[in-house]
């Protein structure tokens, strides 16, 4: 199987062609070793940071912004989003407070202070 990717490690944006056969990835089109690592990671275990908001139940029209404490597997993004959407918290909240514990290896933490 072949996959065409755009490398995002630097602004050059190399067009990568990753050949995946028998569990091995070969990357072509990369100008530097970082591109090879990026290409392999993207095709074997792609991860993303997720950022969203959680409603603050005891403050009118107030949302607190949140993020995953580390990148999570790309395939789990929508599952994490639905858990975040069904969560409400109470103020006060500080930056770094854990809102939901351990979802696919990451905590959901607050990125904004609500006094």
């Amino acid at each position: 199987m072949k996959r065409n990717l755009t490398c995002i490690v630097c602004p050059r944006g190399c067009a990568l062609e990753v050949e995946i056969s028998e569990g091995k990835c070969t990357v072509k089109g990369n100008a530097c070793p970082k591109g090879e690592t990026y290409g392999i990671d993207e095709c074997t275990s792609p991860t993303r940071m997720v950022t969203s908001i959680v409603r603050v139940s005891n403050r009118e029209d107030t949302m607190v912004s949140v993020k995953t404490s580390c990148p999570i597997p790309k395939d789990n993004i929508f599952d994490i989003m639905s858990k975040i959407r069904n969560t409400e918290i109470e103020a006060p909240v500080k930056i770094g407070d854990i809102i939901i514990e351990d979802l696919y290896g990451a905590d959901i933490i607050a990125t904004k202070e609500i006094v």
């Binding site: 912004s65 990125t111 904004k112 202070e113």
Partner: peptide, 21 residues
């Protein structure tokens, strides 16, 4: 609320509200 702020200036990848804070 997305991340990607502060890589050059603060050496950390922060969200907008965190950078502002």
């Amino acid at each position: 609320i997305h991340n990607g702020f502060g890589l050059h200036k603060l050496g950390a990848e922060l969200t907008g509200p965190e950078y502002a804070a």
